[in-house]
Design a protein around this nucleic acid. Structure first.
Length: 451
RNA sequence: UCCGGCGUAGCUCAGUUGGUUAGAGCAUCUGACUGUUAAUCAGAGGGUCGCAGGUUCAAGUCCUGCCGCCGGAGCCA
């Protein structure tokens, strides 16, 4: 990074400074001492480099000062960059001088050794400094960058939706509620879609990208109560166009991460050959074909009885897929699969019926391989005023709150479609993280809001 | 909301059928070492066994309640 703020250089640039003297500032990642030698790993946000102090080569006070550098002390060094096969990363710095910004008065809680998840979550504000978290958050940033690049380069206009909303998109049971001055209740948005539809009627192709909130009492490794979603919405797009777009987007994201994040993926130990395969075309199955596959494979539907016991059924057409079914379907695939045309009863009110099969709606989900799960959900929207009105009434949704949404079908209604891509689920899949809590800096979950 | 599991040193854990003064590794502190990568070697300090109650001659261990945490299902991105 060359800029007028550049008063020193960063670890990631050191390859360009072999044989030259540099100044670095950062934190102690780790330090060991071996007689007349000290090895200090300096972490500056861009990477980690080993700095070496050899007692005979420096002033006495420099060597003594460096001995006070405990884990996560902040400090600066001046020294010469040298290639050395013995150093992690192949490059190290021979220290000539050391200065100190701050020495922690207490022991840093997170050691390079193993910790339990409860302890790490309580120290999330410090856990972020660990190398694995560093890598994940940089991949997250690259994914966001790739998403914006993709839409900006393809004629989309960023049109963000409000976060405070007066109504539910798909029902009120899972909404966070708050007071809105004298106007009654407001809710934190669980999707920007309805507003994106309005924006698309103004701007053609739009995307909204921001945090969304679900007060679902779910507690799994793929749920957050606050998560980020990008939602493109396109006037005149039909379902097949939308599936093509989703495919292009996901391919672009994964290939961009592969290009830009080799260091990070190496830190994470990610098998990049699996990501290399994420190229168009992806697999596609209709819901009906997927059900036939489950039946052929003998994958059962397990349902709870009122007395608490469980019953197994051959998977019936008409049931929505749960995580076990999605996993069974994805076992056969080494890249994402789009499942489309779901039964109308299990999908949202705003989805358009398939004219060629009234049992299903023009909906689609994209499932990621390697246990990545559902990363995209989308549909062609109902564009007929009367049919949409009928659906709103059938779901007992508050008609008042949807008047503006119905207006979109009153004034120049057009076929249109869109989808939502869950940022954290996508990053979880690409990084291979076991749990979604690791892929957002400060996860919000049902039983945790601190730090 | 439902099902299952865990809670012992700063951290990760062991602790037998209830039985003497509750252990290990790491971390910390002291010392040694010119190549450490989770260094090694020698020594030292460190405990409200989640909380409350109960059974018992005796409870980390058994019982009851509470609290905290974890995983899964459903719902979804």
């Amino acid at each position: 990074m060359e800029s007028r703020y550049k008063t020193y250089i960063y670890v990631e640039q050191l390859g360009n400074y072999i044989g030259k003297e540099v100044t670095l500032r950062g934190w102690v990642y780790d330090r060991t001492e071996k007689g007349k030698l000290q090895f200090i790993k300096l972490r500056d946000g861009t990477g980690i480099v080993q700095c070496v102090l050899f007692k005979p080569n420096v002033a006495e006070d420099v060597f003594e000062r460096a001995k006070s550098l405990v884990q996560e002390a902040s400090f600066g060094i001046r020294g010469v960059v040298r290639e050395d096969a013995r150093a992690p990363g192949g490059v190290e710095v021979d220290i000539a001088d050391v200065w100190i910004y701050h020495i922690p008065p207490e022991q840093y809680p997170i050691t390079p050794k193993e910790h339990g998840i409860e302890f790490l979550m309580e120290h999330r504000h410090l856990w972020l400094r660990s190398q694995r978290q560093w890598a994940i958050l940089r991949v997250r940033a690259a994914v966001v960058r790739a998403i914006r690049e993709f839409f900006d380069a393809n004629g989309f206009v960023l049109a963000d939706s409000p976060i405070l909303t007066p109504n539910a998109c798909e029902g009120t049971s899972t909404l966070f509620e708050t007071e809105y001055f004298d106007l009654g209740k407001a809710y934190l948005s669980q999707s920007g879609q309805l507003y994106a539809e309005a924006s698309a009627m103004a701007l053609g192709r739009v995307y909204t990208f921001g945090p969304t909130f679900r007060a679902e009492r779910s507690k799994t490794r793929r749920h957050l109560t606050e998560f980020w979603m990008v939602e493109p919405e396109m006037a005149f797009f039909e379902l097949d166009d939308t599936m093509d777009l989703a495919e292009d987007l996901v391919e672009h994201i994964v290939q961009t991460v592969l290009r830009q994040c080799q260091r990070e993926l190496a830190v994470l130990g990610r098998d990049t050959s699996k990501l290399e395969k994420v190229r168009r075309p992806f697999y596609r199955l209709s819901y009906t074909e997927a059900v036939e596959y489950l039946q052929k494979r003998g994958v059962k539907l397990i349902k709870k009885n009122p007395d608490g016991s469980e019953s197994q059924y051959d998977f019936p057409w008409g049931e929505d897929f749960g995580a076990p079914q999605e996993e069974a379907i994805m076992e056969q695939f080494d890249k994402p699969c789009i499942i489309h045309r779901y039964p109308a009863e299990v999908k949202a009110f705003y989805m358009k019926r398939d004219p060629s099969d009234p049992r299903v709606v023009l909906a689609m989900d994209m499932l990621a391989p390697e246990g990545g799960g559902e990363i995209i959900g989308g549909s062609q929207r109902e564009d007929d005023y009367d049919r949409l009105l009928e659906r709103i009434r059938a779901e007992h949704l508050p008609l008042d709150a949807f008047q503006w949404y119905l207006d979109l079908r009153k004034y120049g209604s057009v076929p249109h479609s869109g989808f939502g891509l869950g940022l954290e689920r996508t990053v979880k899949w690409i990084t291979g993280a076991e749990h979604i809590r690791e892929v957002i800096p400060f996860p919000r979950m049902i039983y945790r809001i601190v730090p």
